[in-house]
Computed example of a mutant assay.
Amino acid sequence: MTTITLQHAAPAPARTRTLLALVAAASPLWAAVSLAQAFTRDGYDLTRHPLSVLSTGSLGWLQIANFLVCGLLTAAGAIGLRRALHGAPGGTWAPRLVAAYGLGMVAAGVFVMDPADGFPVGTPAGAPTTMSWHALLHLASGSIAFIALAAACFVLARRFARAGDRTRAVLSRFAGTAVALGNLWAMSGSPAASLALAVGVITGMLWISAVAARLRATAL
């Protein structure tokens, strides 16, 4: 049933497969680069600092580039999703939401967070007393991206459910719920909020990449 769910009547053009490959690669790349920095940069603590704060400091350019590359790959790859899902339930909104998520990541790379809570090393402990305009825009961009990401997962869940693919429908709902709960936890200010946000968002991101990779594989 899985093959029927994702297979096209005819092989997809090479350009569509290339675009799907961009989406498939974007999230694992972002997660790998972010987590590598999280475990190696002095003063960073994933239970206290969001991954976005890695955009600050002398090596901040690396995380900025990570946001930009991931966002651009995702936004461009959403065109491949639209082509691959054309005519199917969710074939309109899922690609649009993935594109919005990608563009939100680009904006999050352009507008950088402020140093906070001891990171980079030398920054005073605790949250900043004031926030810069670019930090506010970063938070807005991130919120838009994560809302779009969660929504895309739920739209895909509906698509899979209608196609009779219960396993992927459940996985899509799980991914969307993980993103939503991670965001709610982060907004609550509860302990380890940044860790919960990272786990939730990366779960959703990787699921979108997995769906794109499956679409590409069945389109060959």
Score class of each variant (00 low, 15 high):
residue 1 M to G: 15
residue 2 T to M: 13
residue 4 I to K: 13
residue 5 T to N: 09
residue 13 P to K: 05
residue 15 R to N: 08
residue 17 R to G: 15
residue 24 A to Y: 10
residue 26 A to H: 06
residue 26 A to D: 07
residue 38 A to G: 14
residue 42 D to P: 08
residue 44 Y to F: 15
residue 47 T to H: 09
residue 49 H to Y: 10
residue 53 V to P: 06
residue 53 V to I: 15
residue 57 G to S: 11
residue 59 L to W: 14
residue 64 I to R: 10
residue 69 V to P: 07
residue 73 L to A: 14
residue 74 T to E: 07
residue 78 A to F: 07
residue 78 A to R: 01
residue 79 I to L: 15
residue 80 G to H: 00
residue 88 A to Y: 02
residue 97 L to R: 01
residue 98 V to R: 02
residue 107 A to Y: 03
residue 112 V to W: 09
residue 112 V to C: 11
residue 115 P to N: 09
residue 116 A to L: 12
residue 117 D to M: 06
residue 118 G to T: 09
residue 124 P to W: 08
residue 124 P to K: 03
residue 127 A to N: 14
residue 128 P to H: 06
residue 130 T to L: 06
residue 134 H to K: 07
residue 136 L to I: 13
residue 136 L to Q: 15
residue 137 L to D: 10
residue 138 H to N: 10
residue 138 H to L: 02
residue 139 L to S: 14
residue 141 S to I: 02
residue 143 S to H: 12
residue 146 F to Y: 06
residue 153 C to F: 11
residue 153 C to H: 05
residue 155 V to R: 03
residue 159 R to C: 05
residue 159 R to E: 02
residue 159 R to P: 06
residue 160 F to K: 00
residue 160 F to R: 00
residue 165 D to I: 03
residue 166 R to P: 08
residue 180 A to W: 02
residue 180 A to C: 08
residue 180 A to L: 13
residue 183 N to W: 08
residue 186 A to H: 08
residue 197 L to C: 12
residue 210 A to W: 08
residue 211 V to T: 10
residue 212 A to F: 05
residue 218 T to G: 04
residue 219 A to T: 07
